[in-house]
Design a protein around this nucleic acid. Structure first.
Lengths: 186, 186
DNA sequence: ATTATATATATCATTCTGATATATACACTC
DNA sequence: GAGTGTATATATCAGAATGATATATATAAT
């Protein structure tokens, strides 16, 4: 999916600044996708130049102006068009282009070169990390204003449920099978 | 993990060419990590220049010479050092740096702009794709020579078991909950 | 008083990918 | 037998993206 489609999609949830879009990537989207400031800001500028979004500058005393972008009719049309095209091409190729770079799996892969004690700590930390993630996905309380819109998306409950189920499976598997990675019998 | 550590790690399983390293990324590693030719070849050249690997050219009639790299003692030492450093820094930060960019999740996220019929086909294709992946991870028969070493790694059975469990969970969840994504009652 | 974190945009060197170039062999189809 | 597609094998590079840094201020914590 192009960065333009993605930014338009996030702006379709409501007007937002580049900084707030980044907050979505750091927050609720962090486990699925991310874009850097170096991508977000130029993309928004280009979208504005081509009238896919409009921009209102809110001058703030002494902070840089907050530039709040609103998606236009033209932008909504482009977004929907692109999404349909993406969906069709994924169907045609049968390839979803999901890209994973997991440092954790690489560490597992080469675990035979890492002392059992160190690997043990790594796995303990991973379990803690996954438990935190699980809590995050199951948490249903209030969230900061700019993240509210995405939380309330119907598709997001589907995704959160899926993520929770996957993490639970991962945790169970690790607790049951981590002994397989041991090199020496203590 | 640096590309150097990763290439050294793969060469620690046995001597290999750059092309064969790429085959590992396209094959058994494709779901966890990947590097392009544009990264692999320069990395191998640099590792050779610094004596972390040695190289034997096998001249092949009319094909380019096959350059088979072998990890040196110096290379093994660097790899182990780097792996320990990586493990320690992951433990310290509690952040595993896993990076996911999932086109499928983005499509789900914006599914309300995509017709039910199209999304239905997308989900059907995803189920087929996951079933294929599941078969791949469960398959235990013979594999091409250059992929044999990685298949026989003890850590790889752990990873394959984990991947299988995760995919099964994902498939079950999708079959049970895909109706939640529907916008209209047919 | 100092350090750290948060808001807010912008830029850019370095890194990485994805595509292309080059060259050949082999299998398949029309 | 001509053409197409796939596989082997390395190399390079334009274009894209990241991660870091710059700028400026407020607020909370130590």
């Amino acid at each position: 999916m192009q960065k333009e489609t993605l930014c338009l999609g996030l702006l379709s949830l409501g007007p937002r600044s580049g900084y707030e879009i980044k907050q979505m990537f750091e927050g609720p989207l962090s486990d699925f996708y991310s874009l850097s400031f170096g991508t977000i800001y130029p993309t928004l500028n280009n979208l504005q130049a081509d009238k896919y979004v409009s921009c209102k500058q809110h001058s703030q005393s002494k902070k840089p102006d907050k530039k709040v972008y609103t998606i236009t009719k033209k932008g909504m049309d482009l977004m929907k068009d692109n999404l349909l095209g993406d969906a069709s091409s994924y169907i045609r190729s049968g390839n979803f282009g999901d890209q994973i770079k997991s440092e954790f799996f690489l560490l597992l892969l080469f675990s035979k070169y890492i002392p059992d004690e160190t690997m043990n700590t790594v796995l303990n930390e991973r379990v803690l990390y996954l438990r935190q993630k699980l809590e995050q996905f199951k948490y249903d309380g209030p969230v900061p204003g700019n993240l509210d819109a995405i939380r309330n998306e119907k598709s997001v409950s589907f995704i959160r449920g899926l993520a929770s189920a996957l993490i639970e499976t991962g945790l169970n598997y690790m607790e049951k099978n981590r002994h397989l990675l041991k090199k020496k019998i203590n």
